[in-house]
Nucleic acid binder design. Sequence first.
DNA 1: TTGACAAATATTGTTAACAATTGCTCCCTG
DNA 2: CAGGGAGCAATTGTTAACAATATTTGTCAA
Lengths: 237, 237
Amino acid sequence: MPLNTQITEAKETDIQSGTEESVIVERIYKAVMEQRLAPRTKLSEARLCETFGVGRMRVRRALLLLSSQGIIDLQSNRGAYVACPDKDEANDVFAARLLIEPPLVRQLAERSDQIDLSVLVDHLDQENAARAKNERTEVIRLSGEFHTKLAQASGNKFISRVMRELVTRTSLIVGLFGSSNTASCSDDEHTNILDAIKAQQPDRAEELVTLHLQHIQGGLDMNARQDKQDDLAAILA
Amino acid sequence: MPLNTQITEAKETDIQSGTEESVIVERIYKAVMEQRLAPRTKLSEARLCETFGVGRMRVRRALLLLSSQGIIDLQSNRGAYVACPDKDEANDVFAARLLIEPPLVRQLAERSDQIDLSVLVDHLDQENAARAKNERTEVIRLSGEFHTKLAQASGNKFISRVMRELVTRTSLIVGLFGSSNTASCSDDEHTNILDAIKAQQPDRAEELVTLHLQHIQGGLDMNARQDKQDDLAAILA
DNA sequence: TTGACAAATATTGTTAACAATTGCTCCCTG
DNA sequence: CAGGGAGCAATTGTTAACAATATTTGTCAA
């Protein structure tokens, strides 16, 4: 179990971070972003308690926060499970991204002279490096975080938060419906988008983002794996 | 204290709703939307416990959820206070709305023949009725909820949630920075927007929404009341 | 009267024990 | 051998007591 491994690592490396429950949230968030925590994975309180070395209260608060962000699913008396978006939710997420990101990137391109894009440049370097070293989980996470940082570049904290949530859910969706190579698409597209922004080409930037998102969505097989319960029910019918 | 009154009513009218802590969240959310809970109002645990007749755990969970939605501010060891957005947050909220709502309404107008708009029609009736009866708090809340229902009409649950949060914060912002009559702007604009959607005029609908939002934002006086602490400090300086 | 300091009070944070629910194992029966 | 239930183990939900931190009140001295 890769997730187990990672979470255990988390415990060992982050002890000094102390008592903030946001540490727990961040760890689980990161594990989901890197697709090491698979949908439907159960997150039991006791397990998380010993993993992070905190009391049950902290864990429960963290779980409540994660559930409010749609990262996990909190079932009454049954526990917490990594969220498993269905077809409809997946469509909602992509529709939302197609609604928000193109205008967002357009804005960035329009006023790219007044914006500090160095974060994005550095990010693409990281992304390339990770790709070169073939670090799969890093590539997956960075590939998603590019979009988060795009939003951060706008300076709008609200948009940043929304994008972060959208990207996280996209990660879950790609993990569920992604067919083989779609997990981490080429970063040429990211590079091109940033170039268009830098060159102050709003139309082109907007277009590229739209295509990029449609590309990701197109690479999914919505009928691939429904959630396992439904599959089972269908098989037995 | 109007808020006290209302919350006490809540206790008496909603007892049967039972143990869900979402009831608490909904009540406080509604009170904020109707501007009966002013920013910086303290929400003490004990008070909420007896108001809603639930244990401390429920209250604390509700407060955590409200804080994750930006409705309240959770200060360590000091308690929960109704959020008090500053100038920057206000600008972020309006920028986000100007980014999201115009394309959203454009989409609605483009495919308004495939969408059930009856909810919006009914809503405008309610809004008019409340206005006619001069029910201030109702008008304020409905005026905001029109935008939430606009998002709901798109059928996208994610967008709906985001819009709901944006509208709530807008309510706080208008309460803080609104100069006199801006609290609830004329619903002619709402009517016109819905008409443009019904008539399948994407350009016009998008334009009207943009103007509507700018109208609201323009009615604010960003230097009006900073939060009281700063004001006090500034006066004495 | 004002300011600082200290005790008292009130409020929030945490822990641990307890209750309730779920899921599982095992045995029994058909 | 399949199906069904009783009991058991494991997990989550709740409560109440306790600890830690803020805030207020009261007192004293300048």
